[in-house]
Write a protein that binds this DNA or RNA. Structure first.
Lengths: 230, 230
DNA sequence: TCTTGTCAGATTGTCGACAATCTGATTGTC
DNA sequence: GACAATCAGATTGTCGACAATCTGACAAGA
């Protein structure tokens, strides 16, 4: 009897690859908010027909990072200050819930994973790789949602994450300088290892508020700019 | 100057209509959990080519009520007791949040809408129209999410609703008898009109627990049945 | 000058056909 | 009989072409 565990093999449809490519382009800010996606142009660039491209775009529309208007086109979502505000205030609630659910399920594997992800953030910070810094920070943040053993919560958080990653990428791109080089997650990790659940929840809430203020300021700038443009 | 407000005209693509048709079929239980959707057969029945049908299916996959395995097919999601449990426990959190956010925004229009939706539930109950009863009850329940002025919350709740509606429909179908004929929403509506936010939140939580127990019992039955079948 | 009708170009939506992949039934071998 | 190789049928994935729709420019008329 073979006891080795195999993970499912990769989906090798063009559609899945296109989804990954497009998502990455959007979340890293390569494709700007509001930008229109021309099907013919993109399909030619990717050397793919429009059918799988369109199916991929439908997925991303449902994922909430594209928006589609029949016979007009499919566009990268626009980011408003309110969107960011809404996403963040819901995120607070989800974090609190996730911590509560995860709390009793924490074990050695959890702590190891926590440390591993924390280390990845620190590595990205040392490398001055801002894109990866955002990615890893969100992954660190996501652990409680993965561990909470609630598929619906996880799914919801992943949808939220898409946008958060996009917001952060835009923000970072805008100020054109490295994100804080010091480690802002030390306390968060320590609290998740500790005994005081309420304290961990409180910290998550405040930690979020901190990042949030910066993002909001950026978003307000965006809106001023776009209203001038329009 | 014309001041009449026009709402955007309906999306009249085949894709959109297919999405609506399929969603309805799934949420009312016409299509059973786990059932495979044969593209050719469905496209012929709908007199439509496979392209828009496939795009529609991609949307429903992302919506979480279909699941797709490359080169194998697209299936209606399976419902496990844990899924129901997960959906409900998240729903509690979202409800609490929604009530908090809605509270200060309540006005006469809110109360009117609340009464209107409540009336719709009572009408469906009188008509013994169980499908509509589920639909209207969820719409009544959804008002706080619509009113909370948080687009991400609303979106999240709508995704959840899809599944809840499916669960209830299956449940109802299983026991083959009318859902409670008495009005279980009277207290809920009254509390939402009142002054005690905490009480409203508490009631939402308990009200959910009530329905939830019934559903869970049903789901456990489902699983026993399917494990016997497999 | 402003409005309205018309039209060409570009883009999205849809179709029918072909290619890739899976399933299970059959056959051949031991 | 058990097992592996093979194959036909069915189904999903992808393609290229056509139809429907939108956009902006231009012209005609008030």
């Amino acid at each position: 009897m073979v006891t080795t565990e195999f993970s499912p093999i990769a989906d090798t449809t063009r559609r899945a690859e296109i989804v990954a490519l497009l998502r990455r382009a959007i979340l890293t800010g390569q494709l700007e908010p509001g930008q229109k996606l021309n099907e013919l142009r993109i399909s030619e660039q990717m050397r793919v027909s429009r059918a799988p491209l369109r199916e991929a775009m439908r997925e991303l529309v449902q994922e909430g990072i594209l928006t589609s208007i029949p016979y007009a086109g499919t566009f990268v979502i626009n980011v408003t200050a309110k969107d960011i505000h809404d996403a963040y205030s819901l995120n607070k609630v989800l974090d609190e819930f996730a911590i509560e659910r995860t709390w009793e399920l924490r074990d050695q594997r959890f702590f190891d994973e926590l440390d591993g992800r924390h280390e990845a953030v620190k590595q990205a910070t040392r490398d001055r790789d801002t894109t990866r810094q955002i990615e890893t920070a969100l992954q660190l943040h996501g652990l409680i949602h993965e561990w909470a053993d609630n598929s619906v919560l996880l799914e919801t958080w992943q949808r939220l994450t898409s946008r958060l990653q996009m917001y952060f990428a835009l923000h970072q791109q805008a100020r054109k300088e490295a994100v804080p080089a010091e480690d802002v997650h030390e306390t968060y990790v320590a609290l998740l290892k500790g005994d005081d659940m309420r304290a961990a929840q409180r910290h998550a809430r405040e930690h979020i508020d901190h990042d949030f203020e910066e993002l909001l300021a950026y978003a307000r700038g965006l809106e001023k700019r776009s209203s001038k443009g329009a």
